[in-house]
Nucleic acid binder design. Structure first.
Length: 329
DNA sequence: AACGTCCTCAACCGCTGTAGA
DNA sequence: ATCTACAGCGGTTGAGGACGT
């Protein structure tokens, strides 16, 4: 049927607001209050459409708006909320007093999103972009570890990676240990027999308990891959892929990071959606308390350099993923 | 200084949800 | 049940400033 435009385009001003227009709008709203936006421009003597007035007020002129650069705490909250809510800017803004959805959206697109991309993090899923992983380093660390778990880890990784690369990795792992430990090689061969047929036929199989939902697929696994410049990246644990990686890395994190341990315990004790979301009145770091100690640097470059812990937080398995989507759709 | 390119962010566009007639 | 007006939301645009050559 076609919607009637919110205003007649002819004769109405568009583009940047002048101080005089701002003054008129502020004065009118101070007397009459916000609302009735369609009638407001005419009553206030403005050559603008109501929608333009509303946006100018809500995004710029409102007295409770906080201007200026986002603080580190605000940035933490934005990233955490975005990882759960996605592009629900108004919902995110509701948890950041004084910030508008437009401002947060702009800040995300111009700063945070670009930084995540530079770090190899997918800004949509908040997971490490596996297509950017250095396969040679994966192979190298696997060969160095000579562990049965390496190959078992590939069972989980096959769902996410090029099957040919996985086969290559499995073969390299097997070859590396055959000479030094024939018994272990035999065990690994049995495991590889589980891998090889699937790889051979290019079957795509998600790990059984991983929710295959947009934005959450394999997030447990991938979110625990630290970025390339993380100190943790040099540890053997990070060379594992798949569910073994997830479990082992978590164990290391829990041992080495009391703050994360605490936050995970909290998350496991409170399985509701609310428990995952920081509130303006509570600590913003319920999820990843370790973040603050790393990300609170002064420059953009320093923020870049401390990336891993930000994406290492864990959504409890027993948390109902569907809850997120009830809320975010 | 001049020019081109990149970046930022205020503002706009188009769509959806909702309330009321 | 349908239509309309309105508010709100997310995506996109473009003017202007910053920066590099």
């Amino acid at each position: 049927m076609g919607r009637v435009p919110c205003c007649e385009k002819v004769g109405l001003k568009k583009g940047p607001w002048t101080p005089e227009e701002d003054l008129k709008l502020i004065n009118y709203i101070q007397i009459h209050g916000p609302g009735n936006w369609r009638a407001l421009p005419k009553n206030a003597g403005l050559q603008r459409c109501g929608k333009s007035c509303r946006l100018r007020w809500t995004n710029y002129l409102r007295p409770d708006i906080k201007r200026g650069r986002f603080s580190f705490e605000e940035e933490e909250i934005i990233i955490q909320l975005h990882s759960v809510m996605g592009n629900k800017w108004s919902a995110i803004a509701a948890r950041l007093p004084g910030r508008t959805d437009n401002e947060i959206k702009n800040y995300w697109n111009t700063h945070i999103r670009k930084r995540l991309l530079r770090m190899g993090i997918d800004p949509v899923t908040h997971t490490q972009r596996l297509d950017l992983l250095d396969m040679s380093s994966i192979l190298r660390s696997m060969i160095g570890n000579q562990s049965l778990l390496n190959l078992q880890g590939l069972l989980g990784a096959q769902a996410l990676m090029n099957p040919d690369l996985l086969k290559l990795a499995a073969t390299a792992s097997l070859l590396s240990i055959t000479n030094e430990n024939p018994d272990l090689a035999s065990q690994n061969l049995q495991v590889q027999n589980q891998v090889a047929p699937q790889v051979e036929f290019n079957q795509f199989q998600m790990p059984t308990h991983t929710p295959n939902v947009e934005g959450f697929s394999s997030s447990n696994m991938a979110a625990n891959l630290s970025c390339s410049n993380s100190p943790l990246n040099s540890t053997p644990n990070n060379s594992y892929l798949g569910e073994n990686l997830f479990l082992q890395q978590n164990q290391v994190d829990l041992l080495e990071n009391p703050a994360l341990n605490h936050s995970l315990n909290n998350a496991n004790q409170n399985m509701s959606y609310d428990s995952v979301l920081p509130t303006p009145l509570s600590s913003p770091n319920q999820l990843n308390s370790s973040l603050s100690t790393h990300v609170h640097s002064n420059t953009e470059e320093e923020r870049d350099s401390y990336c891993s812990d930000l994406f290492k937080f864990e959504i409890p398995e027993s948390l109902e993923i569907s809850d997120f989507f009830v809320l975010s759709h």
